[in-house]
Write a protein that binds this DNA or RNA. Sequence first.
DNA 1: GAACAATGGTTCAATATATGAACCGACAAT
DNA 2: ATTGTCGGTTCATATATTGAACCATTGTTC
Lengths: 269, 269
Amino acid sequence: MSSAAKTLELLTYFSTNWPEIGLSQLCKMAKRDKATTYRHLQALEETGLIEQNPMTKRYRLGPAILQLAQTREATVPRKLGVQAPLFELANATGETCHVTVLSGTTVYELASCDSPKHGTRAIIDIQTFPLHATASGLCTVAFGPETLMEVALSNLHPFTATTATTAQDLSATVQTIHNTGFGRADRSYENEVQGLSAPIYDQTGHLAGAVSVASVAARFTPELERVIQNELMIAARQISKNWGGTIPAHIEALWAKSLTSENVLETAS
Amino acid sequence: MSSAAKTLELLTYFSTNWPEIGLSQLCKMAKRDKATTYRHLQALEETGLIEQNPMTKRYRLGPAILQLAQTREATVPRKLGVQAPLFELANATGETCHVTVLSGTTVYELASCDSPKHGTRAIIDIQTFPLHATASGLCTVAFGPETLMEVALSNLHPFTATTATTAQDLSATVQTIHNTGFGRADRSYENEVQGLSAPIYDQTGHLAGAVSVASVAARFTPELERVIQNELMIAARQISKNWGGTIPAHIEALWAKSLTSENVLETAS
DNA sequence: GAACAATGGTTCAATATATGAACCGACAAT
DNA sequence: ATTGTCGGTTCATATATTGAACCATTGTTC
């Protein structure tokens, strides 16, 4: 391991849970010598990647990070961070996949990817997703800003027989999503389409969008659902990472619970 | 220079103007050996601080940057408290405004805001501000830690005819700032730019940064200067408040004196 | 208030690691 | 076919990294 790599590795110990780390503490975490770690920290400090809190003498991430982030954001448009995971998702599930972004109170399509696996595909060709009827929309309502619920309620257009058309229906649907961590639309937008989605987070720590799989309802089975959920988790994590965020712990917990409870059901049957 | 420092230094070559850099190109810029630079880039890539564009084979800033930035902003919310006052400042003065932060002995740009008022604008595209030549830098030297003066003296690069290039010059310039409470750079960094700045404080009670207005020298008048000083005071107070600090009484006193003495001059004339 | 155990920071001999000239294969232009 | 790039690799040389021991402060314990 090169000296540079060791130095850079130190950065990974800083997190929102542990934003400031003292020299000795960091030595323990990285299992390195104090002198070595100290010199590494100095190199990082020279570049402004970390700085020392003058009060506590502990180290924290520095201002240069923000400049680099600005450049990164300008350099790499968000779309680019979505392509690869979306492609993977489409291949792994054999279904059509989407990534949507939330802007204001509207859910826009950002990117989509078809899988060549099946002859029949769910083809969704819209630019904005109805909040109350699509998996992406519902997922966004469930985990996005509070105000979205009102907006959703203001337009409960009945696309299909199962579209939520009352405040109670919508509330119940969103509640389920809150409990499972996955957005879900059971033929509620198009009759033959079963949607599943997972939230995406960015560097602000707020919900930034959703990644979703639109499955042809006729071939939707519990097994496929489990596969899709699994792949959605992977995709959501990866896209969130590419966007500079992470899946919040409470969502991860929901997912873990969803999966284990399903495993229990499966082994029980 | 340590290997780690050399590695980290590579990051500074990436900017919005030059977001992707090839290996050979980067070697020329950094004046280093190709093999060395290549290994350094690999170390950076392992950590995700840079990534290689698979199409062009060139390197660009990586996704890990965004996550670090998220943590940094969560740890030390600086950008958050800056946007609104900076926008106000740009609108009120009609000039390009900056906020810089001091980390160690370096003055970093944190945010900038252009005013659409004039066709000509002062465009400053640097990541670190020279201590001896810019209003922000001088203001930071004047009100920051003592040691900054030595650092400033160690690099008196003559940007323009009016740049302070001797210890006496610099000392006199800083003395003026000590007396007025405003950083000032009369075309000392760029020929057509007149800079004014005010110090910012955080919860530690020490100087944390500076807010500055870069005015096009051709339209700089005593009236505009008074307007800018007034708006700078407002912005500096607000940003300091947002950062958990307050402008120290002695600075406020200087400002009060500056303004009244100018008023006296004005009424006398 | 003396002893103790943390902390951040420094030194210097031993040695593990970084270095760069030369080289390779691929590609583009002349 | 030649030449000049490019990104990437090799290996002997030597330079920069390492860590045990040390120091100075600070805060805690008895």
